[in-house]
Simulated scan of single mutants.
Amino acid sequence: MKHRIIIIGLLFSSGLLAANEPDDALQQMRADALARIDVNACLDNGGVIKPVCMNAIPACIYKYPDAGKQCSSGSECEGDCLVVGHFVAEGSAAIGQCSVDNDPCGCYQRILDGVAEYAMCTD
C-alpha cells in the first residue's frame, strides 16, 4: 500500500529562513514571534508558551477539550480529526480521534467526512 506524504517546510519555503542564515537571525525571529504573543491571554486560556517546530519558534499551545474523542470529520472536533497510529491510504474510509492541541508541527493525516486525506508533515 503506497502513501503520499507531503512535506511542508513553512519557514524555508516561505523564504523567511534560508538554510545558511546566521543564528542571530533565527534568534531575532524567535524574539519577534514571542513579542507577538499575548502571554497573559495565552495563560489565562489554559495555554503554555513553548517552542514549536524545527526552529523552536515560540507559540501559545493549548489542549483541546475534546482531545482523543472518536471522530470521522474535523467538524466534530475543536481541532482536526486525525488518523491515529499508522497512516492509511489516501481516500480510504477512516475513523480517528480529535487532535490533542493546536501545535502546528509534526506528521498527521486528517479525516474529512469519514475519508482519510493525504498524510503530511509540517515544520
Rank of each mutant, 00 (worst) to 15 (best):
H86N: 14
A18V: 00
A67S: 12
G9I: 00
Y108G: 00
K63T: 13
L26H: 02
G114R: 08
L16T: 00
N102L: 10
G15A: 04
C71M: 14
N40T: 08
D32P: 06
G114I: 04
I111R: 09
L26G: 02
L34E: 08
S14P: 02
L34W: 06
G114E: 07
D44T: 05
N20V: 01
A19R: 15
G15V: 02
I49H: 05
R36F: 03
L16D: 05
S75K: 15
M54R: 11
C42H: 13
A35G: 04
R30C: 05
N55P: 00
G47P: 08
S14C: 00
L11M: 12
C107K: 12
M29N: 01
Y62M: 09
V84S: 12
A94K: 04
G74A: 07
E90W: 10
N40P: 00
F87Y: 09
A93Y: 04
S13E: 15
A119P: 05
G68S: 05
F12M: 06
C71H: 06
S99R: 13
Q70Y: 04
C60T: 01
G106M: 12
V39L: 07
R110F: 08
V88L: 14
Y118C: 00
D66V: 01
G79N: 08
T122E: 06
R30K: 15
D103L: 06
S14I: 01
C121V: 04
E21A: 15
A94Y: 03
Y62K: 13
V100Y: 07
R36G: 00
V100G: 00
Q109K: 11
N55R: 06
H86I: 00
C107G: 10
A35Y: 06
R30G: 05
R110V: 03
D101P: 03
Y64V: 00
F12L: 11
F12S: 05
G91F: 09
M54Y: 11
A41Y: 07
K2G: 04
N102M: 11
S73C: 03
A67Y: 03
K50I: 01
R30D: 01
D113F: 10
A18D: 13
A25N: 05
G15I: 02
A89L: 12
I57V: 15
Q28V: 00
Y64G: 00
E78V: 15
S73T: 14
V52K: 06
I37F: 09
D80P: 00
C53A: 10
L112K: 15
Q97W: 01
L26I: 12
T122H: 13
R110K: 15
A94T: 01
G68P: 04
I7R: 11
V115W: 07
G74T: 07
V52Y: 08
E21T: 06
V83Y: 10
S75I: 05
G74P: 07
C71G: 10
K2S: 10
L43A: 05
I6V: 14
A25I: 12
S73N: 13
Q97E: 14
I57T: 09
C105Q: 10
T122L: 13
C105P: 04
A56W: 03
I61M: 08
C98F: 07
V39M: 07
D32Q: 14
C42V: 03
R4A: 05
Q28W: 01
D123K: 08
C53H: 02
T122K: 13
N40W: 06
I57N: 02
R4M: 03
C107V: 01
F87R: 02
Q28H: 04
I95W: 12
A33T: 01
C77K: 04
V83A: 12
A116E: 05
C121K: 07
